[in-house]
Design a binder for these strands. Structure first.
Length: 462
RNA sequence: GGUACUCUGGCAGAACGGUUAUGCGUGAGCCUGCAAAGCUUAUACAAGGGGGUUCGACUCCCUCGGGUACCUCCA
């Protein structure tokens, strides 16, 4: 599998070894997660599920940054502890992302639970004279890391001249960044240099190394993390270990809205909670996977609606498959195999989810074509269903299931309707159809039989 | 200002140095008691502008222009 690596700007082969180690920069937990966060995490979820489908073990570490100025400010505003804030939003995180059908990471380490590791890490940096203690904290000395800027392709002197950073006189160099900030208000921890808290960036260096070792396969996150976050992580980590940090840097493009970046600071976010309520998880996933992960996608109701149409086709396909009972058979195994290969090939090529989705929709189309011509036999349905399930698993799409009782009820109503239709009592037949519609059951009248499908409830459906 | 990415048909969006992408939408038809869903079929002078390389460029190079992101916290 090839992945576009931000550091080398080329596609790098992902070792198809038995295990792939991935570190994904998660969220700072001070507010509701929005659809931009969802995109990044969905992309990595698909990557992970694809690899696992190929029997490659994946160790995925995704951090929570739970100590940060924004958390502290919010805590002050609400007059509660920082921990209460971070706990609340971690809870919300799982509330949202579980609904989005994201498989849990191997581990979700938190900065506050790794203070001792962080202190040890900083100690070594100071011992190596790469970091120094000043009045305000401990700083990483950028000049000690000659390759600084290699990820974001920035030149050090240009950074200096264009610097909008408030010049902190206690720093030796304006580009130096804090690994430890002195403070005398909560949250704070003891350190050999003074009470305070870790700076941003340091926790990812420490925790990735702790859980994945020095040189792991993929480090990922949103594009906006390239600078300064990932740049600083590389500097700290490589200065610390003298070894290459991540092998591949994989960055997911931004979600914009009306052409503008969706971000908390701009106040133009659509929270996952909101979008879930209106469109449900499957449409969000289809939307997030509709373009190449590295590019921008623009959030709009129109696009979500387009994906609703697609989702309805997927649902139709699924229910055609489970109701298949035609005696006619057409040999389709080769065709289905090709579609599966096409799907895999697309993902192998830098996780081209858009092409992979095209392959999936070919499968859907093929099924619906067979069903329309009364040629969807049980054997064929089995073959297709197995591929359908494999693909929807990787993409994280999920048809809502229902219990037997509900199914029986539907079948009985349909039988009643059939009777009225035979007797040409269409008004009564239509009443039953309407009743089923209210239950989100849609009837599909084929020549010889009527099948039903349970449609996912979508608020924005109209 | 610097850096990166990007500019493809009404919309979304891929691949590829030479072949119809694909999907949505739209038109027509089939199916139906009527619908819905689905199917069939048709539809798009497509490549930001201008140069160049080439037998041939959407694809490579140069240049001009637009957009977005980053350069401060950010997925």
């Amino acid at each position: 599998m090839n992945i576009l690596d931000t550091l080398s700007s080329t596609e790098q082969k992902l070792d198809n070894s038995e295990k792939i180690k991935i570190y994904l920069c998660g969220v700072t937990v001070y507010d509701e997660s929005h659809i931009g966060h969802a995109r990044t995490i969905i992309v990595f979820d698909v990557l992970r599920k694809y690899l696992e489908n190929k029997n490659i073990q994946v160790e995925l570490i995704q951090n929570f940054t739970d100590v940060d100025d924004k958390i502290i400010n919010k805590a002050k505003e609400e007059n509660v502890s920082a921990q209460e804030i971070s706990n609340r939003y971690i809870e919300n995180y799982f509330r949202d992302f579980d609904k989005l059908n994201i498989k849990h990471a191997t581990n979700y380490p938190k900065a506050t639970e790794h203070i001792e590791d962080i202190i040890q890490f900083i100690k070594k940096l100071i011992d190596k004279e790469i970091a120094y203690v000043s009045d305000n904290g401990v700083y990483f000395s950028v000049s000690k890391f000659p390759e600084y800027g290699k990820l974001s392709k920035k030149k050090i002197d240009e950074l200096k001249s264009g610097s909008r950073i408030q010049v902190d006189e206690t720093k030796k160099d304006p580009l130096d960044f804090a690994v430890w900030k002195f403070s005398d208000t909560e949250p704070l921890w003891d350190s050999p240099w003074g009470k305070g808290r870790p700076g941003w960036h340091i926790e990812c260096s420490v925790m990735s190394m702790k859980y994945l070792g020095g040189n792991f396969d993929i480090h990922g996150g949103g594009r906006d993390l390239i600078f300064p976050h990932h740049e600083n992580e590389i500097a700290q980590s490589e200065a610390h270990s003298d070894c290459q940090f991540a092998k591949i840097w994989m960055h997911v493009g931004m979600v914009t809205i009306m052409g503008e970046k969706m971000s908390k600071s701009l106040g133009n976010t659509k929270s996952i909670k909101f979008v879930l309520e209106n469109w449900g998880p499957n449409i969000i996933r289809l939307f997030c996977l509709s373009g190449h992960y590295s590019k921008v996608i623009d959030y709009s109701e129109e696009l979500l609606k387009e994906n609703l149409t697609k989702w309805r086709q997927v649902e139709t396909c699924y229910f055609e498959l489970i109701h298949a009972n035609s005696n006619q058979q057409e040999d389709i195994s080769e065709k289905i195999k090709n579609i599966g290969n096409e799907f895999d090939k697309s993902l192998e090529d830098d996780l081209n989810t858009h092409l992979a989705l095209s392959a999936f929709f070919q499968l859907v189309k093929e099924t619906n074509r067979l069903a329309a011509s009364e040629k969807l036999g049980i054997e064929n349905a089995k073959i297709i269903m197995s591929e359908f399930e494999r693909i929807s698993n990787i993409l994280g799409l999920k048809i809502p299931q229902m219990n037997q009782e509900e199914k029986n009820k539907i079948d009985n109503l349909i039988l009643g309707r059939e009777k009225f239709r035979e007797e040409k009592q269409f008004e009564k037949a239509d009443e039953i159809r309407d009743k089923l519609n209210e239950m989100n059951i849609e009837l599909i009248d084929h020549k010889g039989k009527t099948i039903w499908m349970k449609k996912e409830k979508i608020k924005k459906d109209c």
